[in-house]
Amino acid sequence: MPRRRDNRLDLLQGTLDLLILQALVGRTRHGYEIARWVEATTADALRVEEGSLYPALHRMVHRGWVTASWGVSSNNRRAKFYALTAGGQAQLRVERRKWTRFSEAMTRVLEARPA
């Protein structure tokens, strides 16, 4: 039975959307592929919970950030593929900026010398 890896990080609030949008840059993926891409890219440091992935995806469809269309997966099954829309790209820029500012701010706090 696969064990939980201890070096895994919990997702910060609000970063799931950013991860999904980023996963869809330049290509379409279905839900499992998105989750897999995040794990692989972060060397399993970040993991997307299935419980939040799908509601988030569907929400994003209705917000017009991504579109969904049925296609065939690599293992030859019907799968729903998600693609970034122009609105999604704009949203991605917004989320990225937010994240950058946040992490810069965090870094500055952590690097500050005690007074």
Binding site: H30, G31, N75, R78
Partner: peptide, 8 residues
């Protein structure tokens, strides 16, 4: 959709 994920 979920079944595919699960099976994967």
């Amino acid at each position: 959709e979920l079944e595919l994920h699960f099976d994967s």
